[in-house]
Design a protein around this nucleic acid. Structure first.
Lengths: 186, 186
DNA sequence: CTAAAACGTTCCATATATCGAACAGTCGCG
DNA sequence: CGCGACTGTTCGATATATGGAACGTTTTAG
């Protein structure tokens, strides 16, 4: 079983709930599920259904990934994950179709993970904001090591690389594409 | 129910499986679940358990977030978000528990929407990156109007305000909390 | 100090997700 | 041709996640 990880999720859930000043009963009612279910879930004594998780995510105003973040960390249930293959998870958070176009990705790097990124279209600018852990990032021209909360912007027209250290890294990657025809920027 | 999003997950799952050249029967066996369960899951006719998703993620060598990526995008299941109440939607994307702590929110502002935010703890810094639309944001001391891709950082220790214009705005809000005791940054 | 309401927990009935087996279709081989 | 091994699907039985009503405890009224 995976009782261990369930309790991690439960704790996280409880944190989110309390951060919003909600009581268990209240959240359960708002999310449309029974108090008992939520209680057991928070106690880590449950194997919730996707639907259940969903309702909670919606009610707590968090994305599904944010809700299940502690799970993503849990290397695996009970079998060791062959993390060697891909220890980098990249999730598109939002895509902006304005001028210029902007994409935002959430990147999770396992400890020691290295991600090499191909150059984008020349003129593309990439901005990296570290959320947790520590990471070294950049292109040949511009690079640096970040602490949580810090940010680095570099030219993504060249190859660039991300390297996570012992504690892994969670970071936000914003890609600003060059606008094709407009020069609205004064 | 949420059939629509389930089918999205199912399709994604099938893609992952086929990308690895695995048959349904094989994957089911390796993951330790019944063929029938996996079949219904891929057909989008299921409300899987966390445990089930887990085993699949492990067996497919993807992180949990990667597996549930299509879900993450689905802001809500199928129930219309109670957006009517507020023309501002705020979703927690990720929470960093490092030092300092960092929270990232995704904010959607309807055209003309105004959001007034209470001051946070003194020393808290807020960074806003515009993804699409246009917005005016800031505190008394620091404020500005942003174009897509632009960013503004200001002191969130004071009251601050977001104003969206005719085309609304999608933006990323990063909140960096002051670290309580440490100054490890050399 | 008592009464009422709220909190979170635990119990049991029910809904349902999962399992295992039988199923129709396809492919390879003798 | 017919057989065997395989694909993915559908069917009943079982395990279990959820819902609703109890519970003991704490907080708010009165």
């Amino acid at each position: 079983m995976n009782g261990r990880a369930y309790s991690a999720l439960g704790a996280h859930l409880k944190t989110l709930r309390e951060a919003r000043g909600l009581t268990l009963s209240r959240l359960a009612a708002d999310a449309g599920l029974a108090k008992s279910s939520l209680s057991r879930l928070e106690r880590g004594d449950a194997n919730p259904t996707l639907d259940t998780l969903w309702r909670l995510a919606r009610e707590l105003d968090v994305t599904f990934s944010a809700l299940t973040a502690p799970i993503a960390k849990t290397t695996s249930v009970d079998a060791p994950l062959p993390a060697a293959t891909d220890d980098v998870a990249l999730t598109l958070v939002e895509r902006g179709m304005g001028a210029p176009a902007v994409d935002v990705y959430l990147m999770h790097l396992m400890p020691g993970a290295v991600r090499d990124a191909e150059p984008h279209t020349p003129g593309t600018e990439e901005s990296v904001q570290l959320i947790a852990g520590s990471v070294s990032v950049g292109s040949q021209k511009t690079s640096g090591t970040l602490a949580p909360g810090e940010r680095l912007t570099f030219d993504a027209g060249q190859a660039h690389r991300y390297v996570a250290y012992d504690d892994g890294a969670t970071l936000l990657v914003t890609i600003v594409y060059p606008h094709r025809h407009e020069e609205g920027d004064s």
